[in-house]
Write a protein that binds this DNA or RNA. Structure first.
Lengths: 330, 330
DNA sequence: GTGAAAGCGCTAACAT
DNA sequence: ATGTTAGCGCTTTCAC
C-alpha cells in the first residue's frame, strides 16, 4: 500500500487516454464496453486508487466531514462520535474529528484548518454555540440547536425532545409524592438545558403545583466531580429538597455517590432521576431511574443528514422521542 | 470562512510573482524584506489560508495522521484518542479517526481510504494485529505491540510494562494470603495479555508458589457484560478461586457487580484486582484496587512520536511504568 | 532577489 | 466513442 499508479499510467497501459479512463472510473458514459473492460482490468490488476487530493483540488470538495465535539471522552459523546464515524464511512466519507475542549480559540483554529482541507460538511456535536459560520457548507447540529438559524444555509438539527424529558421527570417525581425538587443543569442559556427546565416546570403547573417550587442549580462542567459537588450544595442548602433531577446521568451518578456516602437513603429520603441512560446508570446501586435519549441514533442520523444535504436534499430536523426508564432511585 | 484567495491573487495584489509569495509563506529566503512586508500584509488583510490540497498534491504528503482504533467508546481508548487529537493539533497536524470494530474487512478499506488521502503517518491504538503494511509511512503502535517489526520501516511502540503489571498484581494478592487466583484476559496471542499473565506467573514462582496454581480465563470482548459473565464462570468453576486479576478495570467492574449481587463478599471471600485505573474504578463499591496505566500519557507520546518520525528522527519505544493503586478490593 | 514555467493527478470542456 | 488540453493552487527548478 501507499503507492498507487496514476490515471495517466492506466491510460498508457490500456492504450487509451486519460479522459476515457476518468470517464469509466466515474461512470460518465461515452466509452465502449471493450475499452471499459480493458480499463477496469488494469485498475483491478494494479489495485488503482484515485488520488483524492487531485480530485479534491479539481472539484474544490473533499469527501471529508468535520466533526466538532467539545470532548470525545464520556459515554454520551463518544458513543455518538463512534456512530457518526461508522455511518459516514459506510457512505463513503471520512471523518475528521476535532475536540474544542469548549475553547473558543481552539474552535476558531480548528475551523480554519478544516477550511483549508476543503471538507464537505460539518457535524457539531454538543458545543456551546458556534459563532463561526461555514458559508455554503451543510452543517448538522447534534444535541444542541444552533444559536440562530441562518435561513440561507443548509443546516439541520438532530436532538431529543427535551421539553418532554423534563416534563416526564417532574411527572414521575410528583407521582412519587415529591414536592420540593431541585434540578441540576449545565450552564445557563443552553437550549437543551432550558427546555428540560421548562418541561419540568410545566409539569409542576399542570399537576397543580407552583412551578417556583423547583430550584435550579448550575454546574460548570458535566462530569462526576461536579455531580458530587452540586449534590453537596443541594443537601446543605437548607431548602429540604426531596428530589433531584439531574440533566445528565453522569451528574446523577456523582450525586448518588455523595448521597450514599453521607448515609442519605435513595430513594427514601431523596429521589433521584437522571437523563441520557448511559451504561453506568444501570450498574450503580441503587440503579438510576432516568430519561433515556436515543443518543446512538443521533450519530447515525447526523451522518445521514449531512450526506443528504450534500446531495442537495432538504433535510428535516429530527427531534427524537425520550423514554422513562424505571429503576430504583425514585 | 470557506473562501480564501489564492497565492496567484496575492501575487497580483502585491505586485510580485507566485514564486515569491510561495517563498515568503514557506520562509524559503531569497526575497527582500520589502517584498516580504508587502506580501505579509496582503496575507493578513485577506486572511489567506494556503490550500492544503494543492500543497499536498504537489508534495505528495498531507499533514494528516490516521488514527486507527477498534472502538472509540470506552474510557480507556477514548481518553487516548482525545490526547492524541489535541497533541497532534497542537503540532499542526489533523487527526483522521477510524474505528475498525475489530473487523479485518473494515480495516482494509480504511487503510485504502487513508492511502488515497496521502496521510503522513499512522497511529494504531489497540487493534489485534495489523496485517496491512504501510510502506514508507511512520506508524506508532499504542498499547499493543506490532506482530512483527519490519526493520526497514519507521515504527515505534508506546505502552505499559505489562509484565510488571501482572507481577505486582500477583504480589499483592499473595501478600493478602490468596493462593488460588484466577486471571481474566482478553483473547489469547495478544502481547499485552500474555505479558500480564507471564508477570503474574513469575511472581507466583518467585514467592515459592506453583505458577500452575493460577488459572486463566479468556473473554471475547473487553466490556462490562463479559466481566459479569466470566465471573459467573469463575465462581461456578468449582476451583475455589480466592482472587481474580482482571486485565482491564471494566471487566473487574462487571465482576464486582456479579459478586455483589450474589452475596459474595469482596474482598473477604474473593479479592479482586484490576488494571488501567479508569475513573469508574474509584467509584464502585468497594473501590477497586488496580494497576494504574498512564494511558493519557500514551496519547501525548504517540502524537509526539509520529511527528518526530516524520521529521526523520529515530524514536525509541516508550514502555511506561505501572503503579499499584491500593483501594478496597484486596 | 525575482519571475516564468513545469508538473503533481484529476475532471470537464471542447474538439474530432 | 475517444483524445487533447486547460486548469485547480501550490512548490520548485531554472534562468536572469
Amino acid at each position: 500500500m501507499g503507492n498507487t499508479i496514476s490515471i495517466k499510467e492506466i491510460a498508457r497501459l490500456a492504450g487509451t487516454s486519460v479522459a476515457t479512463v476518468s470517464r469509466v472510473i466515474n461512470k460518465n458514459g461515452r466509452y465502449s464496453p471493450e475499452t471499459e473492460a480493458r480499463v477496469r482490468q488494469i485498475i483491478e490488476e494494479y489495485n488503482y486508487q484515485p488520488n483524492q487530493l487531485a480530485k479534491g483540488l479539481r472539484e474544490k470538495q473533499m469527501n471529508l466531514i468535520g466533526v466538532i465535539v467539545s470532548d470525545v471522552s464520556g459515554d454520551f459523546f463518544s458513543a455518538i462520535v463512534r456512530e457518526v464515524e461508522q455511518e459516514l464511512f459506510r457512505l463513503g466519507y471520512i471523518m475528521i474529528l476535532c475536540n474544542t475542549s469548549e475553547k473558543e480559540e481552539i474552535e476558531k483554529r480548528i475551523i480554519e484548518s478544516l477550511s483549508t482541507l476543503r471538507i464537505s460538511g460539518i457535524i457539531y456535536v454538543g458545543g456551546k454555540r458556534s459563532r463561526y459560520i461555514f458559508r455554503n457548507l451543510p452543517v448538522v447540529y447534534v444535541d444542541r440547536r444552533p444559536p440562530e438559524r441562518p435561513t440561507d444555509q443548509l443546516t439541520c438539527f438532530i436532538g431529543s425532545n427535551n421539553v418532554k424529558g423534563g416534563y416526564m421527570a417532574a411527572e414521575r417525581l410528583l407521582a412519587a409524592g415529591r414536592r420540593k425538587p431541585a434540578i441540576v443543569l449545565f450552564e445557563k442559556n443552553l437550549d437543551t438545558q432550558e427546555q428540560r427546565y421548562l418541561g419540568f416546570r410545566r409539569a409542576m403547573t399542570d399537576y397543580g403545583f407552583p412551578a417556583d417550587a423547583v430550584k435550579a442549580y448550575h454546574v460548570k462542567k458535566v462530569d462526576y466531580e461536579n455531580g458530587l459537588a452540586v449534590t453537596e450544595e443541594i443537601v446543605n442548602s437548607g431548602l429540604g429538597h426531596d428530589a433531584v433531577f439531574y440533566a445528565s446521568d453522569i451528574l446523577a451518578i456523582g450525586g448518588i455517590h455523595y448521597l450514599n456516602e453521607h448515609g442519605i437513603r435513595v430513594p427514601e429520603q431523596i429521589s433521584v432521576i437522571g437523563m441520557d441512560d448511559i451504561p453506568a446508570s444501570g450498574r450503580i446501586t441503587p440503579a438510576l431511574t432516568t430519561i433515556r435519549q436515543q443518543y446512538t441514533e443521533f450519530g447515525r442520523l447526523a451522518a445521514d443528514a449531512v450526506v443528504q444535504m450534500l446531495e442537495g436534499q432538504l433535510v428535516e430536523d429530527s427531534v427524537l422521542d425520550v423514554e422513562l426508564i424505571e429503576r430504583k432511585t425514585v
